[in-house]
């Protein structure tokens, strides 16, 4: 009797395991792309004529490109199990403001100045977190406040416009115009914009860095287990510092385009990007424990957020309800991600 019982329970548990495996393995592989396909289907049902038009696809890609640039960098932070970079908003704001301030010195100086400022933020973050092992969330939060204070005090809380900074100088005015056109440059008869190209290129480079370089592999080890990585002789300080520098660099690229798109440099550029970017990265299948997920997934997450907004507007859901829907979809996807990883023994 007992033997039979044992056998049946064993069989039962076995069958249960395989059953769960199939669905979860699929989910684990496809991840957020399932959501993307679902949203595509919904969009097509609602608006079959226009949904797959060039205009709509371009508007979705255009809308996600700023968030996408940030996410391509933030993914490194999440991947190295440092949770989140809370100083993203001010990195975006400050790099935009500095580059606008440098407009009179020509477009090259102006762009490099902005990128350099952002990178500097990354270096400081990297030193504090990589070298001194400060808590990533709290340090970046504190640093964000400091930067925000500096930006507000330095510019007196006002907005700066490229053409005002340029003054009456003809050459500087031309530079200001070039700067404003950064976010408005299109290729192929207006169907592809520079912002999209930059975002996609950043994702592709990030993908190669993550999967095909020594640094990417080391980052995975550091993300999975910091102590193991340290004890096995990896230069963990260098790896984490580098990941912060990459993140801030990506944020400053985003900051340039943000300022160019607004035609305004202001301390409230990029407000709320800290959590909205994290949302997209987490949707893409990365976990806060680090070392999991991929760049393809992150791109899917960014795309899903953009498409969700697009579809909700097409259905006609009001802004109030959009928050609710976003929250529930986010929780659901993250729950499925966690569950599949756990049941497959990966968490």
């Amino acid at each position: 009797m007992t033997k039979v019982n044992e056998n049946t329970t064993a069989a039962k548990s076995d069958s249960r395991k395989t059953e769960i495996n199939k669905a979860l393995v699929f989910f684990d592989k496809a991840g957020v792309w399932i959501l993307v396909v679902c949203l595509m289907a919904i969009g097509f049902i609602i608006n079959p004529s226009d949904y797959f038009s060039v205009g709509n696809i371009r508007s979705i890609l255009q809308a996600i490109s700023l968030t996408g640039m940030c996410c391509a960098g933030l993914a490194y932070i999440v991947y190295s199990s440092n949770m989140n970079d809370m100083s993203l908003p001010m990195t975006i704001a400050i790099s935009g403001m500095v580059s606008i301030q440098l407009v009179p010195f020509g477009i090259v100086v102006c762009i490099f100045g902005g990128l350099l400022t952002g990178t500097l933020v990354g270096i400081i973050n990297g030193f504090m977190i990589g070298k001194l092992r400060a808590n990533p969330i709290i340090w970046t939060l504190a640093f964000n406040m400091v930067l925000s204070g500096i930006a507000r005090v330095a510019w007196g809380g006002s907005q700066i416009y490229p053409d005002v900074v340029a003054g009456g100088n003809e050459a500087a005015l031309a530079t200001a115009e070039t700067f404003n056109q950064l976010a408005r440059t299109y290729f192929f008869g207006g169907s592809v914009s520079l912002m999209m190209v930059v975002m996609v290129v950043m994702f592709i480079i990030s993908y190669f860095i993550m999967t095909h370089t020594k640094f990417g592999n080391q980052l995975k080890i550091v993300g999975t287990n910091y102590e193991t990585a340290r004890l096995s002789g990896l230069n963990v300080v260098r790896i984490i510092t580098l990941s912060y520098i990459i993140c801030s660099f990506c944020a400053s690229v985003c900051g340039l385009f943000y300022a160019s798109m607004r035609k305004i440099g202001s301390y409230d550029n990029g407000m709320g990007y800290d959590f909205s970017c994290l949302t997209a990265v987490l949707l893409g299948g990365m976990t806060l424990l680090g070392g999991k997920g991929s760049m393809v997934g992150v791109f899917g997450g960014v795309l899903a957020v953009g498409m969700l907004n697009n579809v909700m507007t097409l259905i006609g859901i009001s802004t109030f309800n959009q928050y609710l829907v976003t929250g529930i979809v986010f929780l659901l996807i993250v729950w499925l991600n966690t569950k599949s990883a756990r049941k497959l023994g990966r968490a």
Partner: peptide
């Protein structure tokens, strides 16, 4: 078993 940081982040939206 969702990390509290994520769960409450989602709850914010809700």
């Amino acid at each position: 078993k969702i990390h509290s940081f994520i769960a409450t982040l989602g709850m914010q939206y809700v």
